[in-house]
Design a protein around this nucleic acid. Structure first.
Length: 862
RNA sequence: GGGAGCAUAGCUCAGUUGGUUUAGAGCAUCUGCCUUACAAGCAGAGGGUCCGCGGUUCGAACCCGUGUGCUCCCACCA
């Protein structure tokens, strides 16, 4: 077969994706369902432990950006590694209905493509369009996930608006309500007076603007002296004079001596002459403005909170369209900004405007209509969080759930849960699970899963024959559905105790972005503890944020995220996976740079060419079976022994690194093993002289080494490794489902050391003899140990492995040195006395590398 | 404003109990090579007060304090 000069990923990736899918390699079933039938690649009797991962569901109508790419790659590496390590690996794919984002998109699409306004549609009509949209665009992400090589179980695709999932969300709502954990309460929301609709926080855009600060004089009310001569005033600063009619109090800091004389007094709101009390609260900043604040609970979030604290009335002086309401008493029906001007004018005329000054401030604007958003009080649904937070906090502090990297996020997690606030779960949207609360005309309501049930309960409760009930218009926050994700993808809420949930829950590891630690991760833990009485996952791996070269978060609205399919097309999926993984340890941000994808592409090519070289040897060699016998001092023999040890060492290291979720280091280690040790060293050493053929035994060892390398690399770069695995030899099996042979503990460190020394010594001797080089006087090898008794075992091993005639340990001021004398060779092994802690294996490696370097120089002179 | 994190070569990043290191990789730059797996390669070179300052230590990129710059989450000040 003619092999191309360079590796071409396109068809290879498609081929293997198709093959893996046909073989159903990624399908997973609990063992009591008989596992997979053998013809579908399963084991006949499946007693493997489960390894479960649920994908953080991307927005259904979105596309994968580089942040997702990093997430999915990490998950796939863990899942494939688990699968090859003998686990029943199950990776559940899915998507999130993403209420706000999706609804905004659908609204936008309807307007642009069909000229339809949302307000001209009924709820049912709108939802029909939304589902159509989801059907049309919802598969884009699935296609991307597949192209990236993710080994998900496609039979388990879940969506947060699936029928069962919808029911689960409603069931949980009703349950929490019945437990008294859900309540209705007042809350400030942002209101768009132009669109006459509530805005989510995400839809409010803050802009820096130059506003004005008006200093308004409020008269101190004093019943005894009403003569105009003795009128006393306090001055209060405000940006929004049109809200003064909503004032219900003024507030100063209790420690502010300027105002202590106002205790128990009242002041008069100008223009409407309303008396309001003076109150005191630490919230007020003495140094800002005049140090005294007007309290307008209906029109400011902070005032609202203070109002709650002191039980103040709420006077809403604005209509839904931003004009002044009757409660304002004056300028009724005028637009808020027109009213502001007129009020300022009138205050000035009456001499109640002390001054006005320019002021830099931030104002919230509606993203939809670009008008200034208005804080407005509304009735919303809340979840009481304190009780739910406690077990979730314990799960992490007790170590039941491990966060990676923990040093970085444990504190954040703890802080948030200890200071948790109630969760507002209602959203003024249509796309999502509609709140199962049912109202009669008088505003009385019941909470129930269905209308029928609601009627029944309502009729009983209020002794009514046939109540006419209307469902709450609002839907639930997206996170109120996704917090059930690890449970309900296995139908743990709707069919508690089913086989899937029993087997797969708790899941093994959650891989997600650090930005949603509170929104999602903490809440999933709460839901898990509440509904399963068990954590939802054992480990959490936080990836960093992927940013562009300017350090900006990659997002669709900025358009700074490269298109994944374009990248895959250009570099290949393996190279994309490599590039995104190679330099992004857990929790560290990453400025995306295509040059690392370039590196991945080069690596592909290196692998490809190593394979080509082996194929070349296979075809050109004319060796007969058994014709070759390796001599001990043969350099190929040395190479084999040396690489064998490297392989054991690295496999062990990689296994440990993956267990610690240090994936980028694992990949780096493998990269260097393949490029430097295997290609640059091993293959060069066993390379036959020009015109000669390679020894069969050596060749076969090389192939088996390469097999093993491909296997270690496979979870990271599945396509090319599978391809090469099959090109190298005729195979009956696929790498994807091949099991790792466990690393044996028998490879004890000193034995390993001995092996190495032997190999090195014989190679040195070999190289010197061949080239008639004078032996160097000594080679230093640092051994650091605080355990003198280990000298004996080192000595023993050295004696055995090197056939040394003499082994000496010398104590000296610089350290202890070991000298071995084997034949004519003298090799000194020195230890550094300054080191007195622990056996430093690492340093050994360093000096072995030094020896390697020495060998290079010998070789080069050849 | 509250909380958390980051700062290492021109660029993107490694560097996990402080002593493998006169600080590494890839990309970029320069020099020499199309050598029979690989020019997407090989051999080599240049390039860094490990953000500033102070402290702990025999020893600090690493630990502590502090300043500066940037990022994220929460709250957004009359």
């Amino acid at each position: 077969m003619e092999l191309s000069k360079n590796y071409i990923p396109g068809q290879v990736e498609e081929k293997w994706n198709e093959h893996w899918k046909t073989k159903k390699y990624f399908k997973s079933l609990p063992p009591d369902q008989g596992g997979l039938p053998p013809e579908e690649g399963g084991l006949p009797t499946d007693n493997r432990p489960p390894f479960t991962v649920v994908i953080p569901p991307p927005n259904v109508t979105g596309v994968l950006h580089m942040g997702h790419t990093l997430n999915e790659t990490v998950q796939d590496i863990l899942v494939r590694n688990a699968r090859m390590s003998g686990f029943n690996a199950c990776w559940v794919p899915g998507s999130d209905h993403a209420s706000i984002a999706t609804e905004a998109k659908v609204v936008d699409m309807l307007k642009r493509e069909k000229g339809i306004d949302k307000k001209d549609l009924s709820r049912e009509e709108f939802l029909k369009y939304a589902f159509e949209w989801k059907e049309k665009y919802g598969n884009i992400i699935y296609n991307q996930i597949e192209k990236l090589g993710c080994s998900v179980d496609w039979d388990r695709v879940s969506f947060t608006m699936d029928d069962h999932y919808y029911k689960a969300v409603i069931k949980v709502f009703v349950d929490l309500y019945n437990k008294g954990l859900i309540y209705r309460g007042a809350r400030m929301i942002n209101w768009d007076p132009a669109a006459k609709t509530a805005l989510s926080d995400e839809e409010v855009e803050y802009k820096d603007v130059t506003g004005k600060l008006y200093y308004i004089k409020y008269e101190i009310a004093d019943e005894r002296q009403s003569s105009t001569d003795n009128r006393q005033f306090i001055t209060i600063a405000t940006q929004r004079p049109e809200t003064i009619m909503g004032d219900v109090a003024v507030c100063a800091n209790p420690n502010d001596e300027r105002y202590t004389n106002l205790k128990g007094k009242k002041v008069i709101v100008p223009l409407i002459n309303k008396e309001v009390p003076v109150i005191f609260d630490e919230y007020v900043d003495k140094d800002f403005g005049t140090g005294i604040l007007k309290i307008t609970p209906a029109h400011d979030i902070n005032d609202f909170n203070i109002g709650l604290k002191y039980n103040l009335p709420i006077v809403d002086t604005l209509n839904e369209d931003g004009t002044l309401s009757e409660a304002a008493q004056i300028f009724i029906g005028e637009d808020r900004f027109v009213a502001r001007k007129k009020i300022v004018e009138e205050l000035r005329e009456k001499g109640l405007l002390a001054k006005e000054e320019e002021y830099q401030t931030r104002l919230g604007y509606s993203q939809r209509t670009n008008v200034v958003a208005e804080p407005k009080i509304s009735t919303q649904w809340f979840v009481k969080m304190k009780g739910l937070a406690q077990p979730a906090l314990e799960a992490v502090t007790s170590g039941n759930i491990n966060i990676h990297p923990g040093e970085k996020f444990n504190a954040t997690y703890k802080y948030w849960l200890e200071n948790v606030k109630d969760w507002c779960i209602s959203r003024q949207l249509w796309w999502g699970q509609q709140i199962p609360a049912w109202y009669d005309e008088e505003g009385r309501f019941v909470v129930a899963e269905t209308k029928e049930k609601a009627k029944e309960v309502f009729n009983n409760q209020h002794s009514v024959a046939n109540a006419q009930l209307k469902q709450d218009e609002d839907v639930l926050d997206t996170w109120f559905s996704s917090w059930l994700w690890p449970i309900e993808v296995f139908k743990g809420i709707t069919e508690p105790g089913n086989k899937d949930i029993n087997y797969y829950y708790p899941t093994s590891v959650l891989v997600t972005g650090q930005d949603i630690i509170f929104f999602w991760v903490a809440r999933m833990i709460m839901a898990g503890m509440e509904y399963m009485n068990e954590k939802p996952f054992s480990d959490v791996y936080f990836t960093g944020m992927v940013r562009d070269k300017l350090g900006r978060k990659m997002s669709k609205s900025l358009g700074n995220s490269p298109d994944l399919l374009t990248l895959i097309h250009e570099y290949g999926a393996d190279a994309v996976r490599f590039g995104i993984m190679i330099s992004s340890p857990a929790g560290n941000d990453l400025l995306f740079d295509e040059s690392s994808l370039e590196q991945g592409k080069h690596f592909n090519n290196k692998l490809w060419n190593a394979m080509k070289l082996l194929k070349l040897w296979e075809e050109s060699s004319k060796f007969k079976v058994g014709s070759s016998k390796l001599k001990a001092e043969d350099r190929s023999q040395f190479a084999i022994l040396w690489f064998q040890n490297r392989l054991i060492e690295v496999r062990h290291e990689v296994e440990t690194l993956i267990k610690q979720f240090r994936l980028s280091e694992a990949l780096k280690t493998i990269y260097s093993l393949i490029w430097d040790d295997f290609c640059s060293w091993f293959l060069e050493w066993i390379k036959p002289e020009y015109g000669k053929s390679i020894d069969k035994d050596v060749y076969e060892r090389a192939v088996s080494f390469f097999d093993e390398l491909l296997q270690i690399l496979h979870p990271f770069m599945p396509f090319i490794t599978e391809e090469i695995y099959h090109l190298l030899k005729e195979r009956n099996d696929d790498l994807t489902v091949k099991q790792f042979v466990p690393v044996k503990q028998a490879d004890k460190e000193y034995l390993l050391l001995g092996e190495k020394l032997k190999n090195l010594i014989s190679a040195i001797r070999d190289a010197r003899n061949k080239n008639n080089l004078k032996p160097k006087e000594s080679i230093s090898l640092f051994i650091e140990t605080n355990d003198p008794s280990s000298y004996d075992s080192i000595k023993e091993i050295l004696a055995k492995q090197t056939n040394a005639d003499l082994i000496l340990f010398n104590e000296s001021p610089e350290g202890t040195s070991v000298m071995t004398v084997a034949g004519n060779e003298k090799i000194y092994i020195k230890s550094d006395a300054a080191i007195d802690t622990g056996v430093q294996k690492k340093k050994l490696t360093r000096d072995l590398n030094y020896l390697k370097g020495f060998l290079i120089s010998v070789e080069k002179k050849l």
